[in-house]
Design a protein around this nucleic acid. Structure first.
Lengths: 277, 277
DNA sequence: CGGACAATTGATCTACCTCAAAATTGGTGG
DNA sequence: CCACCAATTTTGAGGTAGATCAATTGTCCG
């Protein structure tokens, strides 16, 4: 369960390959403000769950943002912090997690480009969990002040952001169902369906393939399982030609079978344009 | 699902007594609109997580509400519904839950007087889970229209309600940690700490005692355990003189021990006036 | 007093865990 | 291009928390 890394020797992951355009990848530490179209990701994401007007789109695009590239394993915000800005994922994957005694870790959610994982910090001042990059990631920081100004001037955007946090909660609920009442196979299958549809909805997945640059240990900590058991179930899925997870890429070979195995119902994602395949 | 209320020998628990005027209790089905002070419960609840101005309090009190009394086990809203009103619990307990194949049920949250369990329906139009009364309950229904009007006129109330849904999500996260990484004893202990503090924060608990009118099956479905195992752990807690759950009443005999056993940290409840004992 | 439900208890079973070691993988330095 | 490293992934073996099944008992109530 090695967490909190950032050491130079961690470069061994090499995830991300292929699936994502290497646009903002690599590079230094802090770059300029909202350049070209970094906020497009956010627009895309919000459009997957609501309808935006031109003015609202414009307002979003003019948000100030400081971009930064983070190594895999690096914490973005920590439990106990009182952030004064929100973090928007531009590239790569992040997760929210909580640590408890005995070295146990529970991953609470996965986040992909376009997500603002700590949007809640706008109204909940003390972080009750941490946020970290799972793969090398590019993130943009937006001051709370700017977000508040935005929500004041555009009440409908406030409603959409509120909706976003509510959908977040809907995903938490579904994970609760999984951890409480689904067995390992169903749980993993369900997560794969969810991630694929979320990525597809923002244009980061197609043809039943997507990037999934996370470790089996991460998967285990997200699902409430041991890494050993995750490994065995993944093997079973591979052998049944349902799903193959390899080298940071997820390939769904039998979508219908996968959905059926876990009784997947995409309603809880509340996607605007039914992305269910 | 007999509720076990008010029996003469159950007097030991002293639930509710005094706290709630027996006003809207018992009686017929649909009673008049917001009479005396039924919305006080809501005020009390919101004040436990934020600060209200006089005007805001006034505005809340003038919300229109239709009161109704529901039997234990009765559904209030069902998965798939598209509600046009929100439900405020005035008396009794409710829970949100989800059913999946094989007769499995996962309870997602417990709700007590002052809560608006389906506040989210304001921005998420299709219910992705159900809401039911756990004990005989009195609930008030408030039209979405009125809520929208309220949030438009009082942006700060909108922020507070948003905050409320965010705290809801924080509780979901904590439950996820429990189901994913805590053993049965810790999980049950953690839930008891949480419920006691939430009730205390709205004046419905004191002296380490509170009402908990739910079945061991409900508890099991909330914690991802079997009822048999819940029963065994409860027995152990009772024998260790830590907690006794009996006849719908929870008595915490060793609060410090209980908190320590599950490493309880109340931060995630984001209560305004630190209610931690 | 009988019925329905909730709480207990005993007995058995198993999905998933822990421990430990071996095999891969992808990156690195020479 | 290759030998080497550190992190992951796999695999084997044995162990257990908690599940399931099946009574039995206790409680509330009409």
């Amino acid at each position: 369960m090695a967490r909190i890394i950032s050491g130079p020797e961690t470069g061994a992951d090499g995830r991300e390959r292929g699936a994502l355009p290497p646009a903002t990848q690599g590079g230094a530490a802090v770059s300029s403000a909202s350049n070209d179209h970094s906020l497009d990701r956010l627009i895309r994401k919000l459009q997957s769950i609501a309808i935006l007007s031109d003015k609202e789109r414009q307002a979003l695009l003019s948000l100030p943002a400081k971009t930064r590239v983070l190594k895999a394993g690096h914490d973005i915000v920590r439990e106990g912090d009182k952030p004064s800005q929100c973090c928007l994922i531009l590239n790569g994957w992040a997760c929210r997690y909580k640590l408890i005694g005995g070295g146990r870790r529970q991953i609470l959610s996965f986040h992909v480009p376009g997500d603002i994982p700590d949007l809640q910090s706008l109204h909940i001042h003390t972080m009750d969990h941490s946020l970290a990059a799972l793969s090398e990631s590019t993130v943009a920081f937006i001051p709370h002040e700017s977000m508040r100004d935005l929500t004041t001037r555009f009440p409908n955007l406030a409603a959409i952001l509120w909706r976003d946090t509510l959908i977040d909660a809907a995903v938490f609920r579904e994970w609760m169902v999984g951890m409480g009442r689904r067995d390992a196979f169903e749980r993993i299958a369900h997560l794969f369906c969810e991630l694929y549809l979320k990525l597809q909805a923002v244009g980061l997945a197609q043809s039943y393939r997507c990037s999934l640059p996370i470790t089996q240990v991460d998967l285990a900590d997200a699902l409430g399982l041991s890494n050993v058991h995750v490994n065995r179930v993944l093997k079973e899925m591979r052998e049944q030609h349902v799903v193959t997870l390899r080298g940071g890429a997820l390939v769904i070979e039998a979508w219908d079978e996968l959905m059926r195995a876990c009784e997947f119902d995409p309603t809880y994602l509340h996607l605007e344009k039914g992305a269910a395949a």
